[in-house]
Design a binder for these strands. Sequence first.
DNA 1: GTCTATATGAGGATAGAC
DNA 2: GTCTATCCTCATATAGAC
Lengths: 227, 227
Amino acid sequence: MTRSARRSEGTRGTRQARSDKSREQILLAALDLALEHGYQGTTMAAVSASSGLPIGSVYWHFKSKEQLFVALLEHCYTAWMELHSGPEGLRRKLSRGIAGLSGADPEHYTKEEALLKAAAVWALSRQLGGLGEDNEVRAAYLRMRVEMFKVDVERITESLPADVVERFPDLPAKLTVLSLALTDGFYVHANSDVHLELDFAEYADMAARALEGLVDDYARRAAGERT
Amino acid sequence: MTRSARRSEGTRGTRQARSDKSREQILLAALDLALEHGYQGTTMAAVSASSGLPIGSVYWHFKSKEQLFVALLEHCYTAWMELHSGPEGLRRKLSRGIAGLSGADPEHYTKEEALLKAAAVWALSRQLGGLGEDNEVRAAYLRMRVEMFKVDVERITESLPADVVERFPDLPAKLTVLSLALTDGFYVHANSDVHLELDFAEYADMAARALEGLVDDYARRAAGERT
DNA sequence: GTCTATATGAGGATAGAC
DNA sequence: GTCTATCCTCATATAGAC
């Protein structure tokens, strides 16, 4: 929205609309390609071919590959925030994060969410995917991650018994970290070809039970101290 | 060991020894670089520079970058198998896998183990690190992974109560998957710069408690059915 | 704003002297 | 076996016509 000056009236915004459409085409093409091939694996030539627009146009809309991916992340981040504004406990979060990987729950696990998962691995592992120290994509992702983590912690906090949270104030954050580690770990496995035929739904359930058991332990401790 | 024909006697193996030493230098340089920069990020030029040998020598010892990494994986796999031949329960496995990441336990968490963790992410996620479908490094790793998984399951099986294993025969494998997912997930986080100051030892403990709680559930179910 | 042709640079790999 | 110089491919990015 910060780009392209207001053009003359009378064109009914047609030119602008066409430009916006091109921009979106490029973004959507990049989304698909990035999911399939990752950051390094996605070439600007492929984005150009897949979007149907010539390479020059791609570079007209995005001044570099890095900027293209920053814009892509912003697009996905916005979508994520809308999706996760509602209540969401541990079990649901693990279910979405793990079971969602199998593709069994397609309408709930969007491409945008999937890309953010992918970006987690790109950005968090310097050594992977080519996001070096001073990469703008990496920096943008890390900023977003902090915000998403906060939202996750809020949702988990809401879903726990108030007395447990009061007694163990940093439990929600810790559970969020464990939950993220689990979903990230399964994400890696899900992108393997050697699935070993994992039943992700079952693992999501096991993971949820494991963390819920942990919560029960803390709840018992909180209750025990009160007597 | 399959390379270079027996040379004439009288040289006391000096030439051979020098060649072997060069080979090892290259391998060790590649190990360090791969840990730091990953597969794509490790250039043959860098390996050459870091090992002190010219690029031509690197290509004399290893016919391609892929072959170099296959050899590197084999080196690490051998080391891993030696390390994990002894008994090892869930808690110890998680402790090594998660707490070991912090570098707090340096003598126990070797570079070779670290490289295999890295390779897990390279190889399992096609879209990352550039290990495409028909990459020999990927294929080699997947073969090794199957073997390492078997060893993991054996160790977990040994560490569980016999009656529980008898009642739930695939529980060890499932716990192994969960344990791997957790360690892989934390590996991703550990390689982030944004540690959020995670206390890996504490998380290793929480993860162990969570999985042990799961085992207790199954143990109770097994016991309950018996009465 | 859109498109074609091309510059530039990096990285894997080879040739061939020593 | 070791080393230097060089080739080839491919991906990012730009120039400039339309």
